[in-house]
């Protein structure tokens, strides 16, 4: 319990600094909207075509927006020496991981909660269903589980934000495949049973990568 409260303090710190600056959230939301609009130009706006490409657009948007915000998870920490501060705190490295991970999860869910209704509005699609919400939450959890670890790794390299996509994208391929396929099924109003295997893959991915990232995180930020 004490572990969780320590982690939540870090999450709260991130939320507070975000509420005061609104740096990441505002730019990521605008970025997500821009990507949606640009895809609209790329594919043409006919309704039948949209139903085909919508799941792809949705997940490319969320993947890029997620990468943008996850990249920011550790860069300010590093730039302003906050990471050193966190590391001399009497908290375990694992608590730092959970705290940062929950922070990124919160940001991404907020971005998605804003982007999804707009997506529905712009493309006239039945996006707001319970199925799609479950798919989004499961996929986002896996994203931030891996993303937080690689963000901490990338910030300690020479190329910084350039590194994250190259490390992150191959690992989350199964998540993207499952999210796109499950969203496709959800958009054509299939039953939960047809989605089950995709939800299963995402659930397994989330659990496995939360545990593995939790275990190796300490090695990544060690000086």
């Amino acid at each position: 319990m004490r572990f969780l409260s320590k982690a939540l303090v870090i999450t709260w710190k991130d939320a507070l600094s975000e509420m005061r600056t609104k740096e990441v959230l505002s730019s990521v939301v605008v970025f997500a909207l821009l990507v949606i609009v640009i895809f609209n130009f790329a594919f043409g706006a006919s309704q039948e075509k949209m139903l085909l490409v919508a799941p792809g657009i949705l997940w490319v948007t969320f993947t890029f927006a997620g990468m943008l915000s996850i990249n920011r998870a550790f860069i300010p920490e590093k730039e302003q020496g906050c990471l050193e501060g966190l590391m001399v705190c009497p908290i375990s490295r694992e608590a730092i991981y959970i705290g940062k991970m929950l922070g990124s999860l919160l940001f991404m869910l907020i971005v998605e909660a804003i982007a999804l209704p707009i997506f529905t509005f712009l493309f006239n699609l039945p996006v707001l269903s319970l199925q799609l919400v479950v798919v989004t939450v499961l996929a986002t959890l896996g994203f931030v589980a891996v993303g937080t670890l690689f963000s901490a790794l990338a910030v300690n390299t020479k190329a910084r934000e350039m590194v994250l996509p190259i490390l992150f994208l191959p690992i989350v391929v199964p998540l993207i495949i499952s999210a796109v396929k499950a969203s496709e099924l959800a958009l054509s109003r299939e039953s939960w049973a047809t989605l089950a295997s995709w939800l299963g893959i995402m659930g397994a991915f989330d659990v496995i990568f939360l545990v593995v990232s939790f275990l190796v995180f300490a090695f990544v930020i060690e000086e």
Binding site: V146, L149, L153, N156, T157, L167, P170, I171, V173, P174, I177, S178, I201, A204, F205, I208, F209, V212, S213, V216, F219, V220, E222
Partner: peptide, 20 residues
């Protein structure tokens, strides 16, 4: 150390990639 982290995550990912 970084390479080792990628090596571990990557290998764990292989069966999930295969399944997906």
């Amino acid at each position: 150390t970084f390479a080792a982290v990628v090596g571990i995550l990557g290998f764990v990912d292989v069966p999930i990639i295969g399944l997906a």
